[in-house]
């Protein structure tokens, strides 16, 4: 077996270093030998070699669908890749609950909402509702959390007002709809409203959603971003750590 080259890491098909990549895409032209050659040529021009068109078929009104395989010529230097990561540690609900009550001595106060036009509360509900998600109970169930779920289509100003009124420690927002990057615009909007009122440091700011990454969240001024695969206990654990940091019990 060949040694893996971490300085030039390429995809793995069936042999180390083969750089095998599978593409599927649609062209807005009818399938034809010309369309097939055009698709292959495009992939070659992207820098892939050994380009094979495995499948071409008609899709809808005048579209051609392709499955194409090729080999990447250029890899990535794996050693130089940097990613801000949330602490990977996981505690279960009971352990977190116990630590909040022992170490913070009162429930952490959380206000959650879907802001902007987004009406999809599945993610927010999964984190906040008693029931939680996939066996991991929601924050409502914790004795260590006081939660307010404002639901969908909440204006940033309303959210901030409520968070102040509830003396919240943290604000949770959920973004599902991503068409035309509306989730990013909405995320910025909340930060902007906080800044206008000089409140950007007042709350722990957490955002979640399928297309939200921790990196994106940090860039926009949030304390954390939770993506697909996050559970209520992940959010709970993060809030515990952050609260400890805030009250000076942890550096």
């Amino acid at each position: 077996m060949n040694e893996i080259d971490y300085k030039n890491l390429v995809p793995y098909g069936d042999t180390t270093g083969d750089g095998a990549v599978q593409f599927s895409f649609t062209f807005p032209v009818e399938p034809s030998p010309k369309a097939q050659e055009a698709a292959a040529q495009m992939v070659r021009e992207w820098g892939f070699s050994d380009v094979k068109v495995a499948h071409m078929s008609s899709v809808g009104v005048g579209f051609a669908y392709f499955v194409i395989f090729g080999r990447a010529q250029r890899g990535v230097n794996f050693d130089k890749v940097e990613v801000p990561e949330l602490t990977g540690q996981r505690l279960n609900y009971k352990e977190i609950d116990k630590r909040i009550l022992e170490e913070i001595g009162r429930p952490i106060r959380v206000v959650g909402a879907n802001t902007g036009f987004d009406a999809h509360t599945v993610g927010l509900d999964a984190i906040l509702n008693m029931k939680g998600f996939d066996g991991d109970v929601g924050l409502e169930r914790y004795r260590g959390f006081y939660t307010v779920n404002m639901g969908s289509q909440v204006l940033p100003a309303e959210l901030i007002e409520r968070a102040l009124k509830e003396k919240a420690d943290a604000i949770l927002i959920s973004k599902i709809v991503t068409q035309k990057d509306i989730h990013i615009a909405d995320m910025k909007d909340v930060i902007l409203h906080l800044r206008k009122r000089g409140l950007e440091k007042r709350f722990i700011l957490v955002v979640g959603g399928p297309r939200v990454t921790h990196k994106l969240a940090l860039e926009l001024g949030y304390d954390a971003g939770f993506s697909i695969g996050s559970y209520p206990s992940d959010v709970a654990y993060f809030l515990l750590e952050k609260m400890l940091e805030r009250i000076g019990k942890k550096k």
Partner: peptide, 12 residues
């Protein structure tokens, strides 16, 4: 389903 609103080829 969990990624984006369907592309033409996804629907196909």
């Amino acid at each position: 389903e969990a990624v984006h609103t369907p592309w033409l080829a996804d629907r196909s």
